[in-house]
Design a protein around this nucleic acid. Structure first.
Lengths: 371, 371
DNA sequence: ATGAAAGCGCTAACAG
DNA sequence: CTGTTAGCGCTTTCAT
């Protein structure tokens, strides 16, 4: 009987918005608010409120009466009223690029889970890579008085966020710095996973690797390219042997990039992709011209979306945990929000990445090791 | 200047929660509510409210003053307060099975789009096929005072919905009847698409088709099986030649089902799957034992998820438009909500399906037509 | 056409 | 410990 402060109410039975109550000889439809509970429990509404919020100062007998009344009436509090008076909405915003990109549903799932566990609800907004939509999305969230926003899009619009940050609302960004007290950033350690990938390929005997990047306009795509460059250099690939071409993080983009490479006779023995969708496109195009993966061509993806396990062959890829991302984003937001304006919370979190070796990589096609 | 009744406010600039206002000689942080706007425009708060809500009785000059003040202050209304007093939350619930099932993101996208266009926000809840979670999900939505819930899960729990329906909240279900004034149902016309698929196969010369269904506990899975049975009968397949085996709508399930079939020597020349994920699993398993699709085996999916275009070979499948589904669900909800309790809105909508022929179907492997 | 005032359902001082 | 009361920011009568 300790109350469910802001948690989801009444776990057992479904609740009626209206309760049927006998009054005199007539049956009337009565609004089911805190007052109704108070009357029935013969206490003040303040006591009901305290009970519901688990404030310890309520005497055990009264509390029992209140809970009894609550159950009998199937009462549950009105979130809007709670939010209005307390100034807290228990709402968090999650901004993503587009929900049909398989990367995001897994992120959303993780975020929703942890948020709901903690009594928050989430509002999702997709930008579809359009800065104007980003603007609108954020406005919607502001109107709903979200207590924090996680901007998990691939491309981030500096000026927009700048304004958001000035609005005194906690913000969590991915791969993007914004020096402001309520902003924290999740820094993905691209270097780790991409480094492993390059070394994996080098160890296999590959002397040339082509990296198919995402759009250079996207922050996170550039970060991956940079990580690749560094890794390639460390592994002593010359720039010529570590060519970089640009695609757009879609299957079609991957197909196109591959076909262009192939048409120009520039096919390396190994291709690394900036994300799994691109890799899937490459896989598909390679297959359609009769190349066998990994015998004729090694392919590595990035993200480790669930589907990567089910390509043919299963895709070797760099894993970045969406669940980590989601949980970290949530706690970053919450920690900046719960103790408002207390500016001691860390501003930066690192998200690890690591190579997952499956079956799309092998020794190069002309390798002596094969003989 | 007609007002933005409940639409997203101030489309141009990002708004400050606090506005910096000169007062006497000091710069002060002032709360930005309707009163601030009223003061600045030298009108009453009632007038501001009317202006904002586009109520025509406001004189044009006053309206202009109000809008000017609104813009200067970057004011936007507080949704919680609005909701509290008006009893409307402009929130709609969308219950799905699980967001990582590629079927749903496309549905969500459609639903979100149309909802936002109409000034609604959506709350998403995933049941993960667990009735208990369904219960919780719905409770969350009730607490937030959603104005309607679209339950688009594959499996539907009758008693739960029954209680929901009694709660006077508009409900839209998929493939599920619930005789209640505020409940509408979207009836997917499985027969059409599945019929076309069976006939397509029959016309190609297939004499045996195996149907791999989803879990029989799911309503929508059963509906697909039933449609298949009818179509097979119409096409004069004997029950023996139109075998049905059960899987679970996942890639793994499809792989398993195929392997079982293959191990028992029960492989038909054509396999129809209850959804695309299953078909992808079958495709993958078939490939791994050296079967070529469609030469050795024809495969048809269901749903037409986006990825179906990118399998190898591209998947012939029955298309059910998620956008249709989403839009229809939205309007069904809205029409039951806007004119509260007016019970003349249609209760039933049909969602069409149709076969999309791609490259995973061909004449059977032993067909004379090939020679 | 405009304003004053009464709440919406709840929380949070402030009394006792 | 418990109750009374004053709003949270807004919409909506009811006057004018």
């Amino acid at each position: 009987m300790t109350g469910f402060p802001r948690k989801h109410f009444l776990e057992i039975s479904i609740i009626s918005y209206y309760a049927v109550v006998k009054r005199k000889t007539k049956t009337a439809l009565v609004k089911l608010d805190i007052r109704a509970v108070a009357e029935r429990a013969r206490v003040s509404i303040a006591t009901v409120s305290r009970t519901v919020n688990g404030i310890p100062s309520v005497g055990p007998d009264l509390a029992k009466r209140v809970w009894k009344a609550i159950e009998e009436l199937d009462y549950y509090p009105n979130t809007q009223a709670r939010g209005l008076v307390s100034g807290r909405s228990r709402l968090l915003g999650l901004v993503i690029s587009e929900i049909t990109n398989p990367f995001f549903p897994e992120l959303i799932q993780g975020f929703e889970e942890i948020a709901v566990e903690n009594g928050y609800e989430i509002l999702i907004g997709s930008t579809n890579y359009d800065p104007k939509r980003m603007n609108l999305v954020i406005r919607r969230m502001l109107e709903r008085k979200v207590e924090g926003v996680a901007v998990m899009t691939f491309g981030i619009e500096e000026p927009l966020l700048q304004q958001l940050a000035e609005r005194r609302i906690p913000l969590t960004l991915i791969d993007f710095d914004l020096p402001s007290p309520l902003v924290s950033t999740l820094r993905v350690d691209y270097g780790a996973g991409i480094g492993q990938a390059v070394h994996h390929l080098a160890a296999l005997g590959h002397r040339q690797i082509t990296f198919i990047s995402g759009s250079a306009t996207l922050h996170s795509a550039r970060a991956r390219v940079d990580a690749f460059k560094i890794a390639a250099k460390e592994a002593r690939f010359s720039p010529k042997d570590a060519r970089i071409v640009e695609a757009n993080h879609t299957i079609e983009g991957g197909m196109l990039a591959f076909e262009r490479l192939q048409a120009r006779g520039e096919l390396a023995t190994a291709i690394m992709c900036s994300n799994d969708m691109t890799a899937i496109g490459v896989l598909r195009s390679a297959f359609s011209i009769g190349l066998r993966v990994p015998r004729d061509l090694s392919i590595i993806g990035f993200d480790d979306i669930r589907f990567a396990q089910f390509t043919t062959p299963p895709l070797t890829t760099v894993q970045m945990s969406r669940v980590d991302l989601a949980r970290t984003a949530f706690f970053a937001l919450r920690d900046h929000g719960e103790i408002p304006l207390k500016a001691t919370t860390p501003r930066e979190y690192t998200i690890p990445t690591k190579l997952v070796v499956r079956q799309s990589t092998d020794v190069p096609r002309d390798s002596l090791k094969r003989n």
